[in-house]
Simulated assay, not measured.
Amino acid sequence: MATDTELLEKIQRRMVEETDRPDAAATARIVREEAGVISDVDVLAILRKLRHDSTGIGPLEPLLLLDGVTDIVVNGPEQVWFDRGQGLEQADLRFDADADVRRLATRLVVACGGRLDDAQPFADGRLRRSDGSQIRIHALLSPPADGGTCLSLRVLRQAVTTLEQLVESGTLSCELAELLQIMVSRRIAFLVTGGTGTGKTTLLAALLAAVPGHERILCIEDTAELQPIHPHVVSLVARSSNIEGRGAISLADLLRQALRMRPDRIVVGEIRGGEVVDLLAALNTGHDGGAGTVHANSLQEIPARMEALAALGGLDRHALHSQLAAAVKVVLGMRRTAQGRQLHQLGLLHGNPVEVSVIWDADHGSRPGFEDFRRRVSS
């Protein structure tokens, strides 16, 4: 039988009227009374639908069980897609109507403390799950979405990987892992770059695990993803404004607080705005060994990307290049391949204005400057 919306609404009203928290037996009884003659299979189908409408991410929950899933996107009731590292794949899953997608999107946004309705047809939020992971949520209602309500979910699992595990998975070689470990112990500041889902945060967490245990690491993030295996890590997480437009805490705010918290290393999980100005200032005033990630498709794009971000913080091009040249020495580029996520390039920043020299890449191995860099780091 079809579990139509009218029947579900009747059952939900009965559940609210009779008890705040009905147990499974009471819920099944209400289902049978409202649905009339119904098989056990149909009862289970309705119970499953009720659970999906009230907990987790609803009918999308089975997709979270897929190994390595990072993104789930819904384009109206007919199209559900997911990404587990090989690009988007269409799921064998449909919603009955756009109203079901809208109801799910609204519930998720409200659970994040936001608002989603005709007056506010788009919203962002973060949903924390019981397993410690978080889901970044974006919803866009129809209209303005032409083909139906759009829902985008990004699965944010805390990064607890070590360099040894990355070597085993083929992300980087043992030789490079040893070199990067020495680089971290020598307090050389670095940036990890790459596109979305390339493993930037995972590599950063693994490198932070190589920081000597007596040092204090302050991790500043928009969403708590970094959880390096290290005895002294303090996580500071930004916060968006509430429904009234108040209470926002930016990464720049947290960076200024971190400077007063006796940090040995300051790490920004993802540099995406004017906070880059405060980070570079910190790295140039005695806080060596800092790190962060930044979105860029190649190492050569980093100077231009940093220029754009610094402009948001009021720093002009000349000042940015002077600060960047003094603060950051090494850049690491990640990419996603058919075999998985991979360290693609290792580069050095030099000059003013800053340029990037690639001294190693996964396709060709060591390039001019690599052996000299290894000698300097290891000496």
Rank of each mutant, 00 (worst) to 15 (best):
L236Y: 04
A224G: 10
E275D: 07
E270F: 12
A282H: 08
S235C: 14
G273K: 00
L255F: 08
G273A: 15
V233Y: 00
D222R: 01
L255S: 10
H232Q: 12
S235E: 09
E275V: 09
P228V: 08
L251S: 03
A248C: 07
G245K: 14
P231W: 03
L259Q: 11
R262S: 15
V237K: 02
L251A: 02
S235P: 09
I271D: 09
E244A: 14
G247M: 07
G213E: 14
I229H: 03
R246N: 13
G269D: 09
S241G: 15
A252M: 06
L259C: 08
A238W: 04
R239S: 07
P231L: 02
I220Q: 00
S240V: 08
S250V: 04
N242K: 07
I271R: 04
V234W: 00
V234R: 02
L251P: 02
Q257M: 12
G247V: 05
A252L: 09
L283A: 12
R262T: 14
L280N: 14
V234K: 00
R246W: 02
G247W: 02
R256W: 02
D278F: 05
R272C: 04
A238C: 07
E225D: 11
V268N: 10
I243H: 03
E275P: 09
H230N: 01
I271P: 11
A282E: 10
R265F: 06
V234H: 10
I266P: 07
V268H: 07
H230I: 01
T223L: 02
L226N: 05
S241Y: 06
E215I: 02
R246A: 15
V237Y: 01
R262K: 15
L279V: 12
S250D: 07
G274K: 08
I271L: 14
L279N: 05
V277S: 04
G247N: 07
D278I: 06
S240P: 02
E225F: 04
L280A: 13
H230F: 03
C219K: 01
V233S: 00
V267G: 06
S240N: 10
S250P: 09
G269K: 03
R262E: 12
L279P: 06
Q227S: 12
A252V: 08
L254T: 09
V233C: 03
V277K: 04
D253P: 12
E225K: 10
A238I: 06
P231F: 05
L236A: 12
H232E: 02
V237Q: 12
P231E: 01
E221H: 05
L279T: 10
I266W: 11
I217P: 00
R272K: 11
A282I: 06
L280R: 14
P212G: 07
E221R: 04
E275M: 09
L226K: 06
E225H: 10
D264P: 08
V234D: 03
N284G: 14
R256K: 15
E215V: 01
S250N: 10
A252I: 06
I229Y: 00
R265L: 10
I243Q: 11
I217F: 00
S235T: 15
A281C: 03
I266Y: 09
D264C: 11
L236I: 05
D253C: 11
